[in-house]
Amino acid sequence: MKNSVMSVILALASMAAGLAQAGPLVDVTFKNLGREQAVLKIVTTNESSTYQIASPKPREKVEANTSILFRVQRIISPDVNAAMVRYTIGSKTCAFGTTFQMRMMPGGIKQPQWTKTATPSGGATCVATITSTAADYGWKVEFSMK
């Protein structure tokens, strides 16, 4: 019994330590502004890891003129987070990404930096917009495709 209690306490402590190291949360909205269904296409390891840890998972199919929301929070470091996703509509593809990094400036000053990317191919129109940032460094990003 004593060993079981100790095991539970160690497991809870490990989980709490892991949560304490999590990076800021990113809320991702994907908008399909096209006339056809958008299909999720995982190509890179970053897209795969985003899919694995997202909550809920990005939908594999997003109907025309609809949007989805998912959240990503990596447990690598409290100073980084990222989300990458790729959708296709026919021969059009949009590869989207967003990152957060706490940069160390001269004098030991920390400066938060958020980025977003939207890479089109096949004639796609892709837009990435950071719509807000929060005091805890969490942020919201919107990816749209047409």
Score class of each variant (00 low, 15 high):
Ala17Gly: 14
Arg71Thr: 12
Met104Gln: 13
Ser121Ala: 05
Arg86Trp: 00
Lys116Pro: 05
Thr115Trp: 11
Thr119His: 13
Ser67Leu: 14
Gly34Arg: 06
Thr119Trp: 04
Gln37Cys: 13
Thr98Glu: 01
Gln21Leu: 10
Trp114Thr: 15
Val85Ser: 02
Thr133Glu: 09
Ile75Asn: 12
Gln101Phe: 08
Gln37Trp: 04
Pro78Ser: 08
Gly23Pro: 04
Asn32Asp: 05
Arg74Ile: 13
Thr99Gln: 05
Ala54Gly: 11
Ala64Val: 00
Gly34Ser: 04
Met104Pro: 05
Pro112Phe: 01
Ile9Arg: 14
Phe70Trp: 07
Asp79Cys: 06
Thr133Tyr: 04
Thr115His: 09
Thr133Val: 15
Lys110Asp: 13
Lys41Val: 05
Cys94Pro: 14
Thr99Tyr: 09
Thr45Gln: 12
Ala11Thr: 03
Arg103Cys: 12
Gly90Lys: 03
Ala17Tyr: 13
Ala64Thr: 04
Ser144Trp: 05
Trp139Gln: 01
Thr119Gly: 06
Thr99Asn: 14
Trp139Thr: 05
Arg71Val: 13
Asn3Met: 10
Arg71Lys: 14
Cys126Met: 09
Glu142Lys: 13
Ser48Ala: 15
Val43Lys: 15
Gly108Thr: 07
Tyr87Ser: 01
Val26His: 08
Met1Ile: 07
Ala83Asp: 00
Ala64Pro: 11
Ser55Phe: 15
Thr45His: 10
Glu63Tyr: 03
Thr133Met: 02
Ile53Lys: 10
Glu47His: 03
Gly107Glu: 02
Asn32Pro: 04
Gly122Trp: 11
Ala17Asn: 11
Tyr137Lys: 13
Lys2Ile: 14
Ala82His: 10
Lys31Tyr: 08
Glu60Ile: 00
Thr44Lys: 02
Leu10Asp: 11
Glu60Ala: 11
Tyr87Thr: 06
Thr117Gly: 11
Asp79Glu: 12
Ile75Phe: 12
Lys146Asp: 11
Ile130Trp: 05
Lys140His: 12
Thr66Gln: 07
Pro24Ile: 03
Gly90His: 03
Pro58Ala: 02
Thr44Gln: 07
Val85Met: 07
Leu25Val: 06
Lys146Arg: 07
Ile53Val: 12
Pro112Ser: 09
Ala118Glu: 02
Arg103Asp: 15
Val127Trp: 02
Gly90Ile: 06
Ala38Val: 02
Lys57Tyr: 05
Leu69Phe: 13
Glu142Leu: 11
Met145Ala: 00
Thr129Pro: 02
Ala118Ile: 00
Val39His: 10
Met105Thr: 05
Thr133Leu: 08
Met102Lys: 12
Ser48Pro: 02
Gly108Lys: 12
Gln111Tyr: 14
Ser91Cys: 04
Tyr51Cys: 03
Met15Ala: 14
Lys57Glu: 04
Gly108Asp: 04
Phe30Trp: 04
Lys116Trp: 14
Pro112Leu: 09
Ile76Gln: 15
Thr129Val: 08
Ile42Thr: 04
Thr115Cys: 03
Lys140Ser: 10
Ser77Cys: 00
Ser55Ala: 14
Ala118Leu: 03
Phe96Trp: 09
Thr129Ser: 10
Gly90Cys: 06
Glu36Gly: 07
Leu25Arg: 10
Val141Gly: 04
Lys2Leu: 13
Leu12Glu: 05
Ile9Trp: 07
Gly34Leu: 01
Ile89Pro: 00
Thr117Tyr: 13
Asn65Ile: 01
Gly97Ile: 05
Gly97Ala: 09
Gly123His: 03
